[in-house]
Amino acid sequence: MFALSLTILPVFLLLLAGAVCQRLRFPSPAFWPSVDKLSYWLLFPALLFHKTSQIDFSNPLLSNYALVLILALLVTAGVVFIMAWFAKEPPPTASSMLQAGVRFNTFIVLALAGSVYGEEGLVLAALGASVLIPAVNVFLVVSMVLMHGPRSSTGKTYGLGRLVSGALIRNPLVIAIVLGSGTNLLGLTPILLISDMIAMLSQAALPMVLLAVGASVQLDAVRRVGLSFCLSASARFVVFPITIGLLCWLLGIQGLPALVAVLFGLAPTATSAYALARQLGGDAEKMAAYITLQTILSILTVPLSVWLSQYVFG
Rank of each mutant, 00 (worst) to 15 (best):
T154E: 14
I133W: 02
S195W: 02
A199D: 10
I198T: 10
L132D: 01
L247F: 08
G182K: 07
A125K: 12
S202T: 13
A125F: 12
Q203F: 01
L124G: 09
G255M: 04
G252T: 11
L168E: 11
V174E: 11
G118T: 08
I198W: 00
L219A: 14
A167Q: 09
L122M: 05
I177M: 15
M200Y: 03
V178G: 10
T157Q: 08
P172D: 04
Q218D: 11
A233K: 07
V217Y: 07
L185Q: 05
V141T: 15
P150V: 15
A126L: 04
S165R: 10
S143A: 12
V239G: 06
L168H: 07
I191V: 15
G252A: 07
G161E: 09
S165P: 00
G159M: 02
S202R: 08
V131D: 12
L219Y: 05
P150L: 13
V141N: 01
L206Y: 09
V209Y: 08
I133N: 06
V225D: 06
L168Q: 13
V213W: 12
L140P: 03
L168T: 06
Q203H: 14
V136H: 14
Y158G: 00
V136A: 07
L168C: 04
H148S: 08
G245T: 06
N184W: 00
G245I: 02
L140G: 02
A129P: 11
G155D: 10
A135C: 09
L211D: 10
N184H: 04
S216K: 08
C248A: 08
G166K: 00
V131A: 03
S181T: 13
